[in-house]
Design a protein around this nucleic acid. Structure first.
Lengths: 203, 203
DNA sequence: CCCCTATGTTGTCAATGACTACATCGGTCC
DNA sequence: GGACCGATGTAGTCATTGACAACATAGGGG
């Protein structure tokens, strides 16, 4: 195998790929620029030519995470037949599966705004949200949504799925059948908890 | 001011208090045992007499966080009049207020199970959950809960509140009126999203 | 009063992030 | 084809950190 030339040629992408793998495997605390450089076969200073600092690398990982999430949700929605309910189920399963398989990345994606310069992450997050929001908007037009505030409905749905994924991942929901848990949660989202509810969202 | 004696006398509690303050202010990445020791006026080796390592300190912070959360939820529930709906609203506002005011701590509380030795955190979390779960159990006995699976209903409610708090904190829900956002989300939780729902939770 | 344990201090080591100065190459322009 | 410039790498330094070990001090119990 010939030794790598002075110019790596694709270092930024390799660092991001390797960083994502390491993040998911051992968590953000153990994620080290120097270790990534060693794995990529370059010196410890090279990553700083692509990321001004460690936080910038983490930011790029978060943006990529939302981009991947958007792709997953789009794919799930494209594969869903029927109306609002099967679409919401498809989105829910895709979201929870995505989150559970890469929870340290998802934590990074949603990490506190204490992190600096998260405008790019916010933009990427909104692009990912647009996918289920479009489905909810279409459901309202078809008369399948209770109430008229589709923004509020979308927020509720996304908040619930994110919360569910977090609780499942931490073991706080100790349910071995993830798919059933997701389906049950979607049931509850659709029908509500109250036996005699007062007002609907936006009614 | 007399110099501190050799034995601090209360170092563990001081370290935890200071660590929680620093965590909330600047995030977990900047939380440093040495800095905490300096702030407490002891040498850099002293904290290790109370916490075997940095992860143990973080674990203790997470446990305390759930203990404080349980107290807040209990207080909110005690102050709520009427049935299920006002109780759920009281819990929701208390939870979101708690989370938003200390998001880096809440992130730590719910951090990935990649973290070692989280049995104590899990136990503390379950104790915190018991508070809203008791309210939901009482609601079912009063016939105020749609369906019979109160465990699933409790999981749905908690997941939604946690997800809502996370999205509000990260700015992904760009709503300046947090109280109204929480009330709208509770509306949605109670009535459901679907105009023509299929089956209820546990029905 | 003695002893033991809890709790501190001091020092060391390896690893890290950030930074600087320098080296190498790829691409563009003349 | 050669020169030059900027992108991208290398090598070294510094400060800080976490973890650990050896030692010092005091408080409490017998």
């Amino acid at each position: 195998m010939p030794e790598r030339s002075y110019h790596h040629g694709n270092l930024r992408t390799v660092l991001l790929d390797e960083a994502e793998r390491a993040l998911i495997e051992t968590g953000v605390q153990d994620l080290s620029l120097r270790a990534l450089a060693r794995d990529a076969g370059v010196s410890h200073g090279a990553p700083r030519r692509h990321f001004p600092d460690r936080a910038a690398l983490l930011e790029a990982l978060a943006v990529r995470g939302f981009e991947n999430l958007a792709a997953r949700l789009t794919e799930a929605l494209d594969g869903a037949r029927g109306g609002f309910e099967p679409q919401l189920r498809a989105i829910a399963h895709a979201y929870v599966a995505f989150a559970i398989g890469r929870m340290p990345l998802v934590e990074l994606m949603f990490a506190s705004k204490h992190r600096e310069g998260t405008d790019a992450t916010l933009a990427a997050a909104h692009a990912a949200y647009a996918v289920p929001f479009a489905a909810i908007s279409a459901a309202r037009r078809r008369g399948e949504l209770l109430g008229t505030d589709e923004q509020a409905a979308g927020r509720l749905a996304f908040a619930t799925l994110h919360g569910l994924a977090v609780l499942l991942n931490t073991g706080m929901i100790a349910d071995s059948d993830v798919a059933a848990t997701v389906d049950t949660a979607v049931d509850g989202l659709l029908t509500g908890l109250a036996a005699h509810p007062g007002r609907a969202v936006g009614a």
